[in-house]
């Protein structure tokens, strides 16, 4: 089993590694966005799939990262590189401040509160509160990444930057899953009372999930703004949040391959069927219903039991 999965992973890695050399620019851009969205979906999955928090406002953190880079670069003339750390840290800080007062809410109440944060965020952007966000049109003319006089301007560079970002994200996911932090999130998710009785602070680990998730989404947002050299509010509205939410559940909560499959289905397939503009969301909705009925835990559900080998010696 392990070998089969590793084989698939290796083949995927190879394909995605050479992908830019075999496609046109439109598909290259789709590939880059797929990588960026995968990062966001993974970060949503930390909060939703691992900690089990019904969070439907994740596009806000994605947008915070994107707008941080856009504002720092376009409004203040700072290089993109200088915005990387703030694009991660600001969403983390906002997550901490906003999630703090609502983290104790029960599932559905929390769901609508997070939708609320997302909607407020969009209104703040559209109403151009501090004259920084560019209102409904957003911000244009974001620079490319420059390092030692070198410009990472071409779409191929964008692709590989996103590729590296996804690599970092996957590394974090793997570390998280094999640490007391990731496990604590699962315990809370499966049985809050039992988890508390084992000494797990529900509040601490739910906030931890929120903050880490927001940081990764922020990094992805920064990448996204550079890829399109523009940001605008509608790319980060509740509809996007619902998409990330759905990606996780359709693919399989807390499952790394599941989330990749989910992103592929929810983002890449609609691009493939662009010609069928009018009917495609109808089919899409039907597919969502059918997937859930046939595979209620997602297309590739999570498998537990990922324990060190020396504990498996007696397993038959």
């Amino acid at each position: 089993m392990m070998n089969k999965t590793s084989m698939i992973a290796l083949v995927l890695l190879l394909i995605s590694g050479v992908y830019p050399f075999f496609v046109d620019s439109a598909w290259l851009a789709i590939g880059t966005t797929f990588l960026v969205f995968s990062c966001v979906a993974f970060s949503q999955d930390i909060i939703l799939g691992r900690a089990g928090v019904f969070h439907m406002g994740h596009a806000m953190f994605f947008g915070l990262g994107a707008y941080t880079t856009a504002i720092m670069n376009v409004q203040f003339g700072l290089p993109i590189l200088a915005s990387w750390a703030p694009a991660v840290l600001i969403p983390m800080f906002v997550a901490f401040v906003l999630a703090g007062p609502i983290i104790h809410l029960r599932g559905d109440y929390l769901l609508v509160a997070t939708i609320g944060f997302n909607i407020i965020f969009i209104q703040v952007l559209e109403n151009d509160v501090f004259g920084l966000t560019g209102g409904p049109n957003g911000i244009f003319g974001i620079d490319v990444v420059r390092l030692f006089g070198f410009e990472f301007a071409s779409q191929t560079y964008m692709y590989y930057m996103a590729f590296i970002l996804l690599g970092i994200t996957l590394f974090i996911m793997r570390t998280l899953d094999r640490s007391k932090f990731g496990r604590a999130m699962f315990y809370i998710n499966k049985d809050e009372i039992a988890a508390q009785s084992m000494g797990v602070s529900v509040r601490y680990y739910k906030l931890y999930a929120f903050i880490i998730g927001a940081g990764i989404a922020g990094a992805a947002g920064s990448m996204f703004s550079v890829q399109y050299s523009a940001v605008s509010p509608e790319a980060f509205d509740v509809t996007q949040s619902i998409m990330f939410f759905t990606i996780v559940l359709v693919g399989g909560s807390a499952s790394l391959p599941g989330v990749l499959i989910g992103t592929f289905i929810m983002f890449v397939l609609p691009e493939v069927f662009r010609e069928f503009e009018t009917a495609r969301y109808l089919v899409f909705g039907l597919a969502m219903i059918l997937t859930m009925i046939l595979r209620p835990r997602g297309i590739w559900p999570v498998r537990f039991g990922n324990i060190p080998n020396f504990l498996k010696k007696d397993v038959k």
């Binding site: 049985d191 009372i193 039992a194």
Partner: peptide, 21 residues
């Protein structure tokens, strides 16, 4: 009984190590 039903036996017992980690 309140176990983390979908998780493996080892992972369930590991939850007890949480405060010792």
């Amino acid at each position: 009984i309140r176990l983390f039903a979908e998780m493996s036996v080892a992972e369930n017992i590991m939850s007890g190590r949480h405060i010792k980690s």
